[in-house]
Computed example of a mutant assay.
Amino acid sequence: MTDATVLVYSHRPEVREAVRTAVGRRPAADVGPLTWVECETGDEVITAVDLGGIDLCILDGEAQPTGGLALSRQMREEVLDPPALCVLIARQPDRWLAHWSLADGTLPFPIDPLTAPGVVAELLREHADRPPVVRRR
């Protein structure tokens, strides 16, 4: 697999850093190296995705004022060919919200550095194997 660009979104810099640190620059031998894009606001996320080149978004479900769950749902419904979407959830009972958000995957927060790279690598592989979306006129 070629290089991948991963966007990490949270209004809290320590959450963005925890994700980057746990996943690292190369989550698997066949994935990466990763380029990280950090976003602090929901508007920054939408702008970055609209510009293209993002392979995976990791979205903080508890970000303020726009939560990552809502952003995931918005992108799934409004972006023709969205990147892979992963949401951070702090409570296991919130998994139903992750399902509602139409995210491709979830990561628990605090993030586990033993499992996070595998989840990210699998989401990137699945995204790379997906056929491109073609607009019909």
Rank of each mutant, 00 (worst) to 15 (best):
E78A: 14
R73P: 06
E78D: 14
T47Q: 10
L34C: 03
D60C: 14
L80G: 12
L56Y: 11
A22Y: 12
A29K: 09
A70T: 13
D30S: 01
L71K: 09
P27I: 05
Q74V: 01
I54Q: 13
T35D: 14
R76N: 08
S72L: 07
V49T: 06
C39N: 07
M75W: 12
C39Y: 00
D43H: 05
E14A: 12
Q64E: 15
R20Q: 15
D60Y: 04
R26T: 14
L71I: 14
D30A: 08
L51H: 13
L56N: 09
L69R: 09
L59D: 01
I58Y: 03
P27R: 04
I58V: 15
E77H: 11
G52P: 08
V31K: 00
L59G: 01
M75P: 03
V79H: 15
I46F: 02
A63W: 05
A18C: 01
R73V: 02
T21E: 10
V31L: 04
R73S: 11
V23C: 00
P65C: 11
G52A: 08
T66W: 03
L71E: 03
E40H: 10
R25L: 14
A70N: 08
L71C: 10
D81N: 10
L34M: 04
M75G: 02
G67P: 10
L59W: 04
Q64H: 08
D43V: 01
I46N: 05
A22L: 07
R16I: 04
Q74E: 12
T47G: 04
Q74H: 15
E62L: 14
E17R: 12
T21G: 02
D30P: 02
C57K: 03
P27H: 02
W36I: 00
E38P: 02
G68M: 04
E17F: 11
A28Q: 09
L71H: 12
G67F: 03
V79N: 03
E17M: 08
S72T: 07
L69D: 06
E40S: 15
P13N: 13
E44R: 09
C39S: 15
G42M: 02
V49G: 09
V23D: 00
L69K: 05
G53K: 03
T35W: 13
R16K: 05
L80C: 09
P65W: 01
V45N: 10
T41C: 07
E62I: 02
S72I: 00
V31W: 03
R26L: 13
L69N: 08
P33N: 03
L56E: 10
P13Y: 07
V79C: 09
T66K: 05
R76Y: 15
L51D: 15
P65K: 06
M75V: 11
R76M: 09
E44G: 12
P33R: 06
D60Q: 11
A18T: 10
V37D: 09
R20M: 09
E77C: 04
P82Q: 04
G42H: 00
G32L: 08
E62P: 11
G68D: 02
G24L: 07
R25A: 09
P33A: 06
Q64K: 14
G68I: 05
L71W: 12
E62Q: 13
I58F: 07
A48C: 05
A18I: 06
Q64C: 11
V31P: 13
C57M: 03
